[in-house]
């Protein structure tokens, strides 16, 4: 009797292991297009991850360079005050050195900051392509100029030449702040556009999910879905209006930077609309 029970147990164990081995063969029969799509998505995800890593690395460098600049700025101010009071050869030489060093460190900070803006602009998907290309070109040209200025300044020793180099920089780059503001306007609008685009895709996926469950035809869910669509449509209209205004005004120089001071007031309605749409999407999932 015991042997019979033992034999039955072994037999059933053997049968169950054979069935488990058969399962993977069914799952292997997948269409090849899904594999290609997943490879493409993997590449995009990898590129985005690499960009995010690069942005994080440049941001860390920028912050340390900014701290270094602020420290040398204090040394420069002290040297300048001493030069003003003492007017000795030592104070003049000290001011030359501190001024030259400060110019080099300022260039470091500006190069890192503009590179950070450039990387963020590349990574932001919602920016209109012609504007993105225009501002990327301007950023790269400015970075090249500042690098060249920095290399030149490092090699100067004469007081008059150092002074001339610093004055030339002041003249040539007086609008670098405006360039940065224009890029920041683009980044702000582009990020909200990207969030809207993802919300739209999520809404479609939620509709598919609710249809499969058989819930989309229910009156309450249908009304909720329509309300969500209305909210998303409202956000789209505001975004489209903003982009058309930006494109019109970007024809002139630095007009895009004029949006910067008013950015919170201009973008806030779009932000509030998107916030409402995302809340509706979360509620749809929990109904």
């Amino acid at each position: 009797m015991k042997k019979l029970v033992f034999f039955c147990l072994v037999f059933f164990l053997f049968v169950s292991s054979v069935q488990a081995q058969e399962m993977p063969s069914i799952e292997d029969a997948q269409p090849t297009s899904t594999t290609e799509d997943s490879v493409l998505k993997t590449d995009l995800i990898w590129q985005k991850e690499r960009l995010d890593q690069e942005i994080a690395a440049v941001k860390a460098i920028y912050q340390s360079q900014l701290e270094n600049y602020l420290y040398h700025d204090k040394l420069y101010r002290i040297a300048y005050d001493q030069y003003q009071q003492l007017q000795t050869l030592v104070s003049i030489e000290d001011l030359n050195q501190k001024g030259k060093n400060l110019g080099v460190y300022r260039d470091d900070v500006l190069i890192s900051y503009l590179d950070l803006l450039r990387l963020n602009l590349v990574a932001t998907e919602g920016v209109e392509l012609s504007l993105k290309t225009k501002f990327l070109t301007q950023l790269e040209a400015t970075i090249t100029y500042i690098k060249s200025h920095q290399e030149n300044l490092k090699n100067l020793n004469d007081r008059d030449q150092i002074s001339l180099s610093l004055a030339t920089f002041t003249q040539d780059q007086k609008n670098v702040g405006r360039l940065a503001e224009g890029v920041l306007v683009l980044l702000s609008a582009g990020n909200l556009q990207m969030i809207y685009d993802k919300s739209l895709v999520l809404k479609k996926d939620i509709d598919v999910y609710l249809t499969e469950k058989g819930n989309l035809s229910l009156p309450a869910i249908d009304r909720a879905s329509s309300e969500t669509n209305r909210s998303l449509e409202s956000a789209k209209l505001k975004l489209d209006s903003f982009w058309s205004e930006i494109i019109d005004r970007a024809e002139g120089n630095w007009n895009l930077a004029n949006f910067y001071d008013d950015l919170p007031r201009t973008m806030n309605p779009i932000y509030v609309n998107l916030s409402q749409s995302i809340s509706y999407l979360s509620e749809l999932l929990s109904i």
Partner: peptide, 25 residues
């Protein structure tokens, strides 16, 4: 999406222009 939206609040600026003196000499 909600977290992304919070990160991109237009009233908060995450990359302001650095406080550097462009005119010193």
């Amino acid at each position: 999406l909600r977290e992304d939206l919070k990160d991109h609040d237009p009233t908060k600026q995450s990359l302001p222009f650095p406080q550097v003196d462009l005119e010193f000499n």
